[in-house]
Simulated assay, not measured.
Amino acid sequence: MTILLVTGAFVGFTSGLLGVGGGFIMVPIQFFLLTLIGIVPSTALRVAFATSLAVILPTALNGAWGHWRRGAVQIKPAIILGVSGLFGGILGALTASYASVGILSFVFGIVALFSAFWMVGFKYSESGEKQFHSRSSYSIWGCVGGYLSGLLGIGGGVVMVPILNILLKFPIHKAIGTSMAFIAFASAGGIITYLCTGIFATGLPQYSIGYINIVQLVALTVTSIPMSHVGVKAAHRLPEKKLRYLFIILLIYIALKMMGLFQWLNLPF
């Protein structure tokens, strides 16, 4: 329980600070804890995905509200990204509900590595110029981010923030704020799907509704929501460079762990 509380606090803070949902942190920890109590890996991974999204939704709503109050949410792009992300989240969660655990773990690792190296290799733009993009471009990127959100139990912000900032040239604070609004929509699509596809699943941990485990949900949420407010305040007061690099290091470790590299090399971590 302590591990989950600490995880929730860290996820909430990084969510508010960097505009990411925190699924890359929550999913592996939940997965390993569930397998330790005897839940089969295929079920444990889907429970981790679903519960992660259920934690991300209220955390993202709180973070988006905080950024909106500071003028850092682009409303129209957020709505277009969010609606397309919701449908993408449904498709991603449907895919994850029937894909093999090996494939899902490997894809999770690949996306985590890609996001980490992307964050290393590009400098965030601080341009204050207003950018104009077509609805179709927002819809496409929203669907991509939403699909990854539902497929891997992540908010999608770790993909969406670089897209908004690097490709669509949003200033970094507006990229983070708009990403938080997108995450709320995208995670909702995945949650609905995991609730439906998990109704008749067997071997679930106690106190589960569909693939969402209430015990883990409460433990993670109780610390993530208040810490998201702290992260929002820090995002508008402090440079996030050092924390971003710590996050990148953690992403790389989690990616290699989920891909089974350490186990393949017989390394004890």
Results as ranks from 00 to 15, higher is better:
G102L: 05
K233G: 05
L113C: 12
G210F: 08
G85A: 04
K233N: 14
I225S: 08
Y253K: 01
I248M: 11
V40M: 03
I249A: 15
K169G: 05
F24T: 14
G89R: 12
S149H: 07
P268S: 11
G38T: 05
I225N: 02
K76P: 00
I75S: 02
L168V: 02
F10L: 15
I90F: 10
I209G: 00
V159W: 01
S97V: 10
A9W: 08
S179M: 05
A186H: 13
L246P: 01
A99S: 15
V83T: 11
V20W: 00
V6K: 01
Y124N: 12
G109A: 07
L4H: 08
L167E: 00
A186K: 10
I154W: 02
I199K: 10
L57T: 15
T35C: 13
I192T: 11
V6M: 14
L4F: 15
A255S: 15
I39F: 09
P205T: 08
V20M: 11
I3Q: 10
L34P: 07
G38V: 02
L246F: 15
G153M: 10
Q216I: 14
P171C: 08
A93T: 14
L36F: 03
S137D: 09
K242C: 02
S52T: 10
V232P: 02
E129C: 03
G189M: 10
P171H: 08
F13H: 07
F106M: 13
L251W: 01
L204E: 02
V230H: 07
R69K: 15
S224F: 09
K123G: 07
H236S: 06
N165M: 03
Q216P: 00
G210K: 03
I110M: 14
A9G: 12
H236E: 07
K76E: 02
V215Q: 09
R46N: 06
V55G: 07
F262C: 03
V158F: 13
T197Q: 11
M26P: 05
L113F: 11
A72T: 06
V101D: 13
F247H: 08
G82D: 03
G121D: 01
S228D: 06
Y194Q: 05
T7V: 12
S228A: 15
F13D: 06
I225H: 04
L204C: 00
V111G: 09
L243R: 02
P205D: 11
S125F: 06
V27Q: 03
G109D: 08
G38F: 00
I166D: 00
V232K: 00
V6C: 13
Y194P: 09
T51Y: 11
P28C: 13
I249F: 11
G189K: 13
Y245N: 13
W264A: 14
L152V: 13
G16Q: 07
A50D: 11
A96M: 05
I252H: 06
